[in-house]
Design a protein around this nucleic acid. Structure first.
Lengths: 181, 181
DNA sequence: TACAATTTTCACATCTTCCTGAAAGGAATA
DNA sequence: TATTCCTTTCAGGAAGATGTGAAAATTGTA
């Protein structure tokens, strides 16, 4: 009976890890990184590199590199146990925290640079940098399209900013969902 | 002078296409697909396969396949010109529409399946399917973690649903941003 | 300082994903 | 129907991403 339970847990964990693996693209992290994090999250315990290697059948180097990245992202914490030289790793427990962490990370790494390039593109089509020809239709059209995009992205960016700063965003969201309808 | 303008436009377009290329990960589409769409969007004109091949230095087969995908996603439209056997392709012009299109697509393809698997995982840890052992701490902990996750994802899912259905979401968002603060 | 335990790094191997080009398929014209 | 123009398909190849394992580095212990 004990054995049956352990097996059952393992199966669920495996499914969960596999699920995390599939979410990797959505989170913008590599599949293995995601799997490791998934394992740490679902187990809810601090695991050593060897534990992870064994459980996921991944080489030591690979685990090491991905764990560092996870720590960098702030999704995983290093844990020291007294009397043990090994390091252990555990996942954040708070899902909202994990979510905002990843979202902010992606914003900083991917969205902000995009906004900057877009602005640069736009500025190269203004009268200041292009002279009288800025009035030409070919220029106008492109300028407009870039501008449209900038407006939307800036809006979304602001929204996100607001949504992610502190747990307040969540509360607001809940209200927005439950109110009217 | 004409030449200088054309060159300048080309440079901006190239930067834009490159930017789109980088956004591919964020959108969950392949880089080349993104580049083609970027070109069509920034040009604001209907281009033929040959135009695209020449402009982006991509093989015919590649362009063909990625264009079909773009049409499938609904980001690009086929356009026929009378008296011309070639087919032309043009991008949607409305950025909000493009955005919701991609978001809905991703939700359907990636998020919904995730929610389903998560629910399955959760249900395998209930007393109904596991018996008395469901009370064990090891089971409880995992059950709880999965449940937390489900709650958050379901919430976000609902929010997104609401946000993306019709342009209303945008208006609400703008209000939320401009009000209080 | 020497030693042992653990982690990190990195050249190389593997795997996956994407791209190419040519052949097959389709559609409009004569 | 034959011809021409254009698009799609797909087997094979290239490029890029990821994983491995062993040597080097680091950290703790005596």
């Amino acid at each position: 009976m004990k054995v049956a339970l352990a097996e059952r847990l393992e199966t669920v964990e495996d499914q969960f890890v596999e699920l995390w693996n599939n979410m990797a693209g959505l989170w913008g992290i590599s599949p293995t990184m995601a799997r490791i994090h998934g394992l740490l999250y679902i187990c809810g315990a601090a695991l050593s590199m060897d534990d992870i290697m064994a459980r996921l059948a991944i080489s030591r180097g690979n685990v090491s590199m991905n764990l560092s990245k996870l720590v960098e992202w702030g999704l995983v914490r290093r844990v020291h146990k007294r009397g043990d030289r090994k390091e252990y790793y555990e996942s954040l427990a708070d899902v909202w925290e994990m979510f905002t962490l990843v979202a902010n990370q992606r914003k900083r790494r991917e969205i902000d640079p995009i906004l900057n390039t877009l602005r640069r593109c736009r500025d190269e089509l203004t009268p200041e940098s292009i002279g009288g020809q800025a009035a030409k239709e070919s220029v106008q059209k492109r300028f407009q399209r870039i501008n449209e995009l900038l407006k939307l992205l800036t809006l979304l960016d602001g929204l996100a900013q607001r949504f992610f700063e502190s747990h307040k965003g969540l509360r607001e969201a809940v209200e927005m969902l439950t109110s009217e309808e």
